[in-house]
């Protein structure tokens, strides 16, 4: 069936059009205006609307790259439905890093937004009204925090059947359940009955080619699953659901010597790394041990550690050896890439 025109603010996007839009954001005290970039691929034939967005905090660069490369790889003529990509949702956060918003708040918790509210709430309102409400499915592209390298994985609400079904085709080895109650953006998508997938991979302020490639493939596969793109869904990766994930924190400060890799299976009591005296003046050395069996899905890449800092993230599974096999198989399928 022929697609109809799409309206975003005062712009009309026609079937078969690729539009680069700039949504004006709340004003600052300087005369430099901020705009949220919105890239719209509006297919000639009717179909679902997928919204992809990234840079919610201001430092998730992998997501920016994934969104841009996905748009570059697509032609509106080849899609059924619509793809709306917002490579940078929080432009203020990106340009004022490490500040996230003028108020210091997290943009995710400004949703669903308020037309008359704070700086962040006004951004959230514009995004919700003009973009999010048009979505049939939504992908948030995330990375770990600064110096936190994360194994590519999908987070979704397991209670949402469609989100769970789609999460299985994202081609990441691990799917993890998320709670929405502490994140107002995720809650907003639930309220709007939009299945949300959160792809997390790599670390903040870095490009990780492997994480980017997996994100692109996963997004394309979601499009195939939704019928936006023609072709069969890639089912080479059969992800395994994680029961829980937990960070191990440092109990002492010093220099961390990591002894494990992402995706590695560890047993309870295994040594994951050692913290030593940064000045080398003593023989001080404290091992960091796994407190439970599982797979390493997050590693702190900074050698300088202070007490209470998150060091290793361990995901637990019902069947850890099966999880290990899935991750090993997935790793073998990945091309050799390096973070930049």
């Amino acid at each position: 069936m022929k697609n109809s025109n799409l309206h975003i603010c005062d712009a009309i996007i026609h079937p078969g059009e690729l539009a680069n839009l700039a949504l004006p954001l709340p004003e600052q005290y300087s005369c430099s205006p901020l705009y949220m970039p919105i890239k719209v691929l509006h297919g000639k034939t009717k179909g679902p609307c997928l919204v992809i967005f990234s840079i919610l905090k201001g430092d998730e660069l992998n997501g920016l790259e994934i969104a841009n490369r996905v748009v570059s790889a697509l032609d509106p003529k080849d899609i059924s439905g619509t793809v709306i990509a917002v490579p940078v949702l929080n432009v203020y956060g990106l340009t004022h890093y490490p500040n996230r918003l003028p108020s210091g708040h997290n943009l995710a918790n400004c949703f669903p937004g308020d037309e008359k509210g704070s700086f962040g709430e006004r951004i959230a309102y514009a995004f919700t009204q003009e973009v999010l409400k048009k979505a049939d499915c939504c992908i948030e592209l995330q990375t770990g925090d600064k110096n936190h390298n994360i194994l590519p994985q999908i987070y979704c609400n397991f209670d949402n059947q469609q989100a769970r079904r789609l999460a299985r085709v994202f081609t990441t080895p691990v799917i993890t359940k998320v709670e929405n109650k502490n994140n107002r953006l995720r809650q907003t998508t639930e309220d709007l009955h939009i299945p949300l997938l959160v792809y997390q991979a790599g670390e903040a302020m870095r490009f990780d080619e492997g994480a980017i490639t997996t994100g692109i493939e996963g997004t394309m596969n979601i499009m195939r699953a939704l019928g936006i793109l023609a072709g069969g869904v890639n089912t080479d990766v059969r992800p395994i659901a994680s029961r829980d994930e937990e960070w191990i924190v440092a109990h002492t400060g010093g220099v961390l010597h990591t002894e494990v890799n992402l995706g590695q299976n560890v047993k309870k009591g295994d040594i994951l790394g050692t913290i030593t005296d940064p000045f080398g003046g003593t023989d001080f050395s404290e091992p960091v041990k796994a407190h439970q069996e599982g797979i390493i899905v997050g590693i702190n890449t900074s050698p300088f550690i202070y007490e209470g800092l998150e060091l290793f993230k361990i995901a637990t599974f019902l069947d850890t050896s099966k999880a290990e096999n899935v991750i090993e198989e997935w790793q073998q399928q990945q091309p050799d890439t390096q973070a930049t």
């Binding site: 009309i12 996007i13 004006p24 037309e115």
Partner: peptide, 17 residues
Amino acid sequence: FCKSQADFTYLRQQTKP
């Protein structure tokens, strides 16, 4: 579609905050 191919199309929100 009468839009710039080299630049963004700058939107105007229907209701000004």
